[in-house]
Amino acid sequence: MNAYDLLIAPFAEFDFMRRALIGVIALGLGAGPVGVLMMLRRMSLAGDAMAHAILPGAAVGFLAAGLNLFAMTLGGLIAGFAVALGAGAVARATQMKEDAALAAFYLVSLALGVMLVSLRGSNVDLLHVLFGTVLALDDPTLLLIVGVSTVSMLTLAVLWRPLVVECVDPGFLRSVSRAGTPTHLVFLGLVVLNLVGGFHALGTLLAVGLMMLPAATARFWASDLTALVVAAVLVACGSGVIGLLVSYHLGVPSGPAIILVAGGAYVLSVLVGPIGGILPRLMPRRHLEA
């Protein structure tokens, strides 16, 4: 098997592989930068909580209308925004910290979702919602993913400065502007959007993987913010492409394959990453004169 067969042929020969390729690259472009900001804002686990919040919404949409893109997206968006905005609002209006508020809200959302699914009484197959179908992206789904990615990048471009300042020195932002709270809420909205876009391809729970793993990996390679974002996007898109190829050649499910490739990149970076990786730290290095 030559390089062409290994890397190019699957995409050249099959339409569904080309669609999946566009899907994962769009997801990587949107989720990479969002993931970096989540990590820097110490919200790495908040994405996971929000994914749990989206799951019941999507499931309810699925129960109501079957495998309907619109119903599932709407359900996921409603559940996600309710939890993100609710937790954000409680954290800003009361003495409660956002992580605790988020935990409270997503657990309620999850329980409510399970309750609604049980009431319906049907033993439906929710595997689609859980693990996604990156190899079966139809036109509307692909447009949704690319749309989310576009909105995400444009919004980040506009809100970059307040997002960064709110993270590095929130006291300063409060002293010069009232933009802090709205910016934060818009950012939480972006997280939800990206997760909802991602769940059609990877499932609600794995969608977080393409957001957080590339960001965590990038931290071992880049020390400046721009480089972090570029590295995270590269890792996300690269994991997507390699994961699809692994899935194609080995006949394994594509969603987990993509996330496992990203996980592999993370483990490798922990070991050999030049910035704070384990091996570089163990290497004997003489200190400088000044």
């Binding site: 820097l40 809100l159 400065r161 307040p162 960064v164 300042v165 993270c167 590095v168 020195d169 929130p170 006291g171 300063f172 002293s175 010069v176 502007s177 933009a179 880049a222 020390s223 400046d224 913010l225 972090l228």
Partner: peptide, 30 residues
């Protein structure tokens, strides 16, 4: 307003130039 120094996240990847430049907020805004 300069709050007590502890409020700045020193682990954030931003350099001296950029943090000083924020002082121009009144001119640059968001």
């Amino acid at each position: 307003y300069l709050p007590q120094a502890a409020e700045v996240d020193r682990s954030f990847p931003i350099n001296v130039y950029d943090i000083v430049a924020l002082g121009l907020w009144r001119r640059t805004g968001l």
